[in-house]
């Protein structure tokens, strides 16, 4: 769920093409865009307070076999929520024709790899800006003049 929520909708869409047609789903809750109030903690660890909102789109679908998929994804993209909910339902269904492992290997894992690589590159670029302090050792005192 976390990988699908953080993935780009177009990337999920194109990855889905590799597993063929997605099954027909019935709406339990049509995509709805609303707001989530993001909370922080005072001083990072104290009592909660409201920081500000993020748009989120949620929906719920049901497969023909009755299995339910739910998605809450940041942003305003109804299609993103629909794909995430459909895949969520499919991943909970009993394995059939190797569909679940196909979803893992063709959709989830490649998307996860892209996200990990992107995060890692950003983190390594930040790491390159870490200050390496060095201390100037005081030069050894000059030997007393022999004069």
């Amino acid at each position: 769920m976390s990988i699908l929520a953080k993935a780009d909708c177009a990337a999920i869409e194109s990855a889905c093409k590799t597993i063929g047609e997605l099954p027909h789903v019935q709406w339990l809750r049509r995509p709805e865009t609303g707001l989530v109030m993001v909370r922080g903690r005072m001083g990072g660890s104290g009592a909660k307070f409201n920081l500000g909102e993020v748009p989120v789109t949620r929906c719920a679908v049901r497969l023909e076999n009755g299995i339910i998929g739910v998605a809450w994804v940041q942003g305003r993209d109804a299609r993103h929520a629909e794909l995430a909910a459909t895949l969520d339902a499919l991943l909970q269904a009993p394995e059939h024709d190797g569909l679940i492992s196909k979803i893992h290997t063709h959709i989830i894992e490649p998307l996860a790899a892209v996200q990990t690589a992107r995060r890692d590159l950003k983190a390594r670029k930040a790491a390159a800006t870490k200050v390496e302090f060095y201390t100037l050792a005081r030069e050894a005192a000059a030997p007393p003049s022999s004069a």
Partner: peptide, 23 residues
């Protein structure tokens, strides 16, 4: 714009100690 959207939920408090640091 934000006044046109319904409030669906509040998040869990964000954990800034687990931040992916950029700075």
């Amino acid at each position: 714009y934000r006044t046109t959207l319904p409030r669906l939920a509040a998040s869990l408090p964000i954990d800034t100690s687990a931040m992916s640091l950029q700075r």
